[in-house]
């Protein structure tokens, strides 16, 4: 019953998104396309933060890797969008795989700090590596892509929007399907009680690694979409404010919810753009305050991250004990999942 309602809502929303370009102007279509790309990064953040219980501020790193790989490498390989998305996903996954040894042994707030550092490092590298990335000036003059072999190149904002929508819908659908196999329960089980999962013989580190690499691939693919949607990229697209906004969006959307992550990311981007207009210079401050408020007020906030099983004595020695997070609500909280 609930599943049917969800399916209906998702269908209506998707239909609405498909007709949008015939209703709005070019400028709005371009913004919407960019928002969809960010929403896809938000999905990767939700996968890690909400589903697997690894809060992250570093998904901008594979996002950036995907964007630059797509713009620099992908465009030389082929002008076919799907190929560029694949190249970008590979770049994002590779970057995620390289950072695995730092992230998988860590838990809780430490993960936030490490991923934040990785994200910042990525932006610094992008700014310095002028010969490839164009430095802080960014990369313009992106060659137009065609979605598939034999199709015309995407020449209008509307066309680019529809292409972005198609790729995002496909990837989000794939994530949702994957989470309905045993992958979903296994990741959520690890978030609920990691020690219990180990006690059943599961290789938890392997699952977390898989989730992290998959999330990297998704963020990388989103990077390729950003290149198409925006026709220009610079390190500013991947800064700390983007990571923070994404986490905020995911928290607002209900951390464990893939659909919620999309909605939340869109909402946050809209608020930011609107705030830039009415409160020039103060938008980061307001968003920061909003973030703190959300974390403390929403029951499904980032406090529901991977944590030790409350109450029982900690194993001694504790090799991979998660950082103790205040236990607020032991019971499951209803989540909106599309």
């Amino acid at each position: 019953m609930i599943r049917r309602v969800r399916l209906a809502v998702a269908t209506v929303v998707l239909a609405g998104l498909v007709v949008v370009p015939w209703v709005v102007d070019d400028y709005t279509a371009a913004i919407l396309a960019r928002t969809l790309a960010l929403g896809l990064v938000g999905v990767s953040v939700a996968l890690l933060t909400g589903v697997a219980g690894m809060p992250t501020l570093g998904q901008t790193a594979p996002y950036a890797a995907g964007a630059y790989a797509s713009a620099v490498l992908g465009s030389q390989v082929s002008d076919v969008g799907v190929v560029q998305v694949a190249v970008a996903a590979l770049a994002g996954a590779t970057l995620a795989a390289v950072t695995l040894p730092l992230i998988v042994p860590a838990r809780g707030v430490i993960v936030l700090m490490i991923t934040l550092a990785i994200g910042e490092l990525a932006v610094t590298v992008l700014g310095r590596w002028r010969s490839v990335t164009g430095g802080t000036d960014g990369l313009a003059g992106i060659t137009p892509v065609r979605p598939l072999w034999g199709l015309p190149v995407l020449a209008t904002d509307q066309a680019r929007y529809l292409y972005t929508l198609a790729v995002v819908a496909t990837l989000v659908g794939a994530v949702l399907l994957l989470l309905r196999t045993r992958v979903g329960p296994l990741l959520r089980a690890g978030r609920d009680d990691e020690m219990r999962l180990r006690a059943s013989g599961h290789r938890v580190g392997l699952y977390l690694s898989g989730a992290h690499v998959a999330a990297g691939a998704i963020a990388g693919a989103a990077g390729s979409l950003l290149v198409v949607a925006q026709q220009y990229i610079s390190p500013a697209d991947f800064g700390f404010d983007t990571s923070a906004l994404l986490l905020l969006g995911v928290v607002i959307g209900g951390t464990a919810s893939i659909g919620g992550a999309l909605v939340g990311a869109a909402l946050v981007i809209a608020v930011r753009d609107w705030l830039f207009g009415v409160l020039p210079g103060h938008a980061p401050l307001v968003l920061g305050a909003l973030f703190v408020a959300t974390v403390y007020l929403l029951p499904t906030g980032v406090t529901r991250v991977r944590r030790p099983r409350g109450g029982s004595r900690p194993p001694i020695p504790a090799p991979r004990q998660p950082a103790a997070t205040p236990t607020r609500d032991r019971g499951p909280t209803p989540e909106l999942r599309v």
Binding site: P185, R188, D192, M195, R196, A256, S312
Partner: peptide, 14 residues
Amino acid sequence: INRTHQRPAVFATL
């Protein structure tokens, strides 16, 4: 070797 815990450990959201 499989076990149960004195304080039962289950996956709360599953």
